[in-house]
């Protein structure tokens, strides 16, 4: 089957795009390598999503996922490896299968930047976490180390200081202390745009180059959410992008 729209990523941007695309009467397939919900499912207390004061990321995204599916969007759990633009058809190659659509919306989001190889070797078999609020409590009374020097690292250190017996603070490339029971990595995020390298114009950090209208360098391929160049990366701006990208895709489909 050839879908009208394939959306890569089932976070806030992707699922909002799925809602808009489905409501416009288009067949929509959302491809997700991990689980629907995106980065926000790690957040336990959300206070800036209008209408749902003090909700959790998991609860909010579960509702949005159900809304998208109820409106007719299909969700398939398959990691996208590569996208091939054949003009009026776009082929999306995944780990398990290949899917085809007439338009594509990229909504892969971002992922935590990994430690250097040297640090990873240093860490050895010790657990590595990218989220202190997720895993910190497992190291109650034990020494841990935080890698990073930005705001996120400071936030992680402050959180862990209330739990761990000692919190080492090192920069990337510093050696990992011998006695640290776990390594918390907070050295920023990188866009998950590997599957479109060589296909779409990316900036030097790997973000998809786009304007507020969510169009990309390829006709029929749009981008929404954190993986595009933008100033404000928030839940509501991701949702806004989802709507804009879907609207653009629908207009494009109605024309071809």
């Amino acid at each position: 089957m050839i879908y009208d729209i394939i959306i890569v990523g089932a976070g806030m941007a992707g699922l909002t795009a799925a809602i808009y695309g489905s409501r416009a009467g288009k067949s929509v397939l959302v491809l997700e390598g991990n689980i629907h919900g995106g980065q926000i499912i790690n957040t336990i207390n959300i206070e800036n999503w209008p209408g749902d004061y003090k909700t959790t990321g998991a609860e909010l995204m579960q509702k949005i996922y159900k809304q998208a599916v109820d409106l007719g969007a299909e969700v398939e759990y398959d990691e996208v490896i590569k996208i091939v633009d054949k003009g009026e058809q776009k082929e999306v190659e995944c780990e398990d299968a290949k899917y085809t659509a007439r338009a594509v919306i990229l909504a892969m989001g971002t992922e935590p930047r990994k430690m250097s190889d040297k640090q990873a070797r240093d860490a050895g078999n010790r657990p590595v976490s990218y989220c202190a609020t997720c895993d910190g409590a497992l190291y109650k009374g034990k020494p841990v180390v935080v890698v990073g020097s930005g705001n996120t690292a400071k936030h992680e250190i402050a959180y862990l200081e209330g739990i761990a017996s000692k919190v080492y603070h090192i920069h990337h490339d510093d050696p990992i202390p011998q006695d640290a029971a776990a390594v918390f990595v907070a050295i920023g995020r990188v866009p998950s745009t590997e599957c479109v390298e060589g296909l779409i114009e990316l900036d030097k950090e790997g973000y998809v180059v786009a304007n507020e209208d969510c169009t990309t360098s390829q006709e029929g391929i749009y981008v929404a959410g954190d993986c595009r160049t933008k100033k404000v990366r928030q839940l509501v701006t991701a949702a806004a992008d989802g709507a804009t990208a879907a609207e653009k895709a629908v207009r494009y489909l109605n024309k071809i």
């Binding site: 689980i35 499912i41 790690n42 336990i44 998991a58 579960q62 997720c134």
Partner: peptide
């Protein structure tokens, strides 16, 4: 799982 873990809530519904 734990109550304070967001991904755990997601995992429960899965």
């Amino acid at each position: 799982n734990a109550d304070w873990c967001g991904p755990c809530q997601m995992m429960k519904s899965v």
